[in-house]
């Protein structure tokens, strides 16, 4: 060949750290340990330091990003066992109203309302949605889409729980920094815990349920029980985010059931990539600051999320995270062709 351009070809090599089974790691050197550790430690450390440097508006954005990150993680967790929710705002809103209601009417302090709302929200979610999870396909998505909207309309129409005005003057968490740290910590703990769970046998069963629930049943496993556990976990995570938000803003209104909280997590997962949780987290960390930048556009924001969502599903179905991960694991060199 004579053209200079054709003298080289790309050579690609996968780093061979994962030997045979993915439970066995052969870590040979500091370089390899760093190679494994850095992509985990750097972002986590960065997020943990961030609240120290941010104030006022940007601190709120950080809390927001962590909230949406939690919702996206919860969505991804449900999806890993084949339940696709279009109503993350149900989880969020239940947690928010539980915390708000308990604080407003019974004057329970946040130390109590946070855990109660987290667990109670999870329980209510799994109780409400248990009948639906027996059915596969679009039913689950349909019902989860409807419930928050109907809750919102119900609150609007009946005036219960503060009606359209919402409940205000709730107790704050001690200090804004405390809630910022709670949000960041909750987010990171959830991220790493989910990643661990999904690689354990428990996660294996969940993913198998998504692939073929019947084969799992023939293995003597109660898939409905497993699915309601997954619902409880995902619901709790969403409810925690909602409860934290309530106390952070010292206010809860019907907007917690709004579409934003349902759409943005899905968009985050679609952008970041499904199945690894890191993708969901990354997606939320990209989309939330972006949407703050777009705040000036007002209502158009949601339309833009939707476009991002559609575009990323159509053009990069594996998601940004999986793409980056693949590239990180590969050496690419140009090799001369002789």
């Amino acid at each position: 060949m004579t053209e200079p351009g054709s003298k080289f070809r790309k050579k690609r090599l996968d780093r061979g750290i994962k030997a045979r089974a993915d439970t066995i790691f052969a870590v040979a050197s500091w370089r390899e340990i760093l190679y494994l550790l850095l992509p985990r430690a750097l972002p986590a450390g960065f997020l943990l330091l961030l609240p120290l440097f941010l104030d006022g508006y940007w601190e709120k954005v950080l809390v927001y990003a962590c909230m949406f990150g939690l919702l996206a993680l919860s969505w991804d967790f449900l999806a890993s066992c084949g339940l696709f929710s279009l109503g993350q705002s149900l989880f969020f809103g239940l947690g928010a109203y539980l915390a708000g209601g308990l604080n407003y009417y019974l004057h329970w302090p946040p130390v109590v309302t946070l855990p109660v709302a987290t667990i109670g929200g999870g329980l209510i979610c799994s109780a409400l949605l248990s009948p639906v999870m027996r059915l596969r396909g679009v039913y689950f998505a349909m019902v989860t889409l409807m419930l928050p909207i109907l809750f919102m309309k119900g609150i609007e129409a009946t005036g219960l729980l503060g009606g359209t005005h919402g409940l205000s003057a709730l107790s704050p968490l001690v200090h804004d920094k405390v809630s910022a740290y709670l949000a960041v910590l909750g987010f990171l703990v959830c991220l790493f815990a989910f990643r661990r769970v999904i690689n354990s046998d428990y996660g294996l069963v969940l993913m198998a349920i998504r692939d073929d629930d019947r084969a799992v049943m023939s293995g003597g496993i109660n898939i409905y029980w497993r699915k309601s556990q997954a619902l409880f976990i995902a619901g709790s995570v969403g409810a925690f985010a909602g409860a934290l938000m309530t106390h952070h803003y010292q206010f809860v209104g019907k907007s917690v059931f709004a579409l934003d909280y349902s759409i943005l997590p899905v968009a985050a997962v679609a952008l970041g990539g499904q199945g690894s949780f890191a993708g969901a987290a990354l997606g939320a960390m990209i989309l939330v600051p972006l949407s703050e930048a777009l705040r000036a556009l007002g209502g158009l924001r949601i339309a833009i999320y939707c476009s991002i969502l559609i575009l990323s599903i159509l053009t990069l179905p594996e998601g940004v995270f999986h793409y980056m991960e693949r590239k990180y694991q590969q050496f690419e060199t140009k090799v001369e062709v002789r």
Partner: peptide, 22 residues
């Protein structure tokens, strides 16, 4: 791909509605 179908139709619908509102 049930998931993708669902998300895309939903997102497209919301996009249309939000554009109209805007």
């Amino acid at each position: 791909i049930a998931l993708a179908e669902l998300i895309v139709t939903f997102a497209a619908g919301v996009a249309i509605l939000e554009l109209l509102t805007w």
